[in-house]
Amino acid sequence: MSPQLLTKRKGEIMLRKKPRCFVGWLLFLGILFAASSWAWAVELQSPWKFVFSLQGQGKGMALPVALYIDQEKERYYVVDSTGNKLVSFGADGKYLQEFSAEGNLQKPYDMARLSDGSLLVVEKGRNSLTKIDLKNKKTAHLVVKHQGQEVFVDRLETDGDKVYVLDRSSGRILQLDGALQVAKSFTMPAGSGWLVDFKLAEKKIWVLDQKKKQIYSYDENGRPSPTIQLAGIDFPVSLAIDPTGLFYVLDRHRGTVVAFGRNGEFKYQFLTKGQGRDNLYFPQEIRLDYLGRLCVVDEGNSRVMVFKR
């Protein structure tokens, strides 16, 4: 073989090898870029930015489990179940005061303010719906009954004069009248799992099924809409309905908020499990406030985190 031919052949080899190598690197870099872009995109898709957290004063809150947002007074009320108190905050997150009904609250779990100014508190320790008349300093404990059976009141929502409660025992949403007697009951579809939260929005009741990872919805007359199946979550505990067309579902075990479209399609998720600033540790409830801010009751970290878009 002549040297010229060898060189020529070597040149051929080089020419053939170089593009292969180049294409390989290009492909690798492309995949790397696509993967990192996707990761960034997923992160960036979350439009929520931390604003402040509600933490209380002194020793703070023990284990906050629920948040009530008073649009009229522009206040946040946090229910601290182990601290046996209700803690109020201003619209800017500033601590206002604590209320424990003179130390008589027993494991409060949820609350609402009625149109007459009185407070309605779910007390797990008494299994009661407790009405507190702040002006007259009177407290009435009511064990709700439905069809002769004791109702295990859990989550509480109000819409004007209407009061709705989730009954953990029967798995129904009950609508109560002014005397806190059951006026109507909303029954879930056959084969449903167990219910952990519900919200009122868009003239509907939206109910979260933890076991089946589904959302049911009913209009005021009890007519159901198609069930929405969720995927990619472990242990949903609470939901919020965004007027922009999203559901936010709180995953207690993963410590994350997952956004879904109205058909249950995954959109994005944010926050992770832990005890740092961008973490949630056994969170319990999620709500949107009157300014469209997302509020997450972070039970394990004893705070409520507020995010704005």
Binding site: T82, D154, R168
Partner: peptide
């Protein structure tokens, strides 16, 4: 014992 913030009183249609 189930009258606690976190409990296994299941809100299902059958007997939990």
């Amino acid at each position: 014992s189930m009258m606690a913030p976190h409990n296994h009183m299941f809100a299902g249609m059958e007997n939990g």
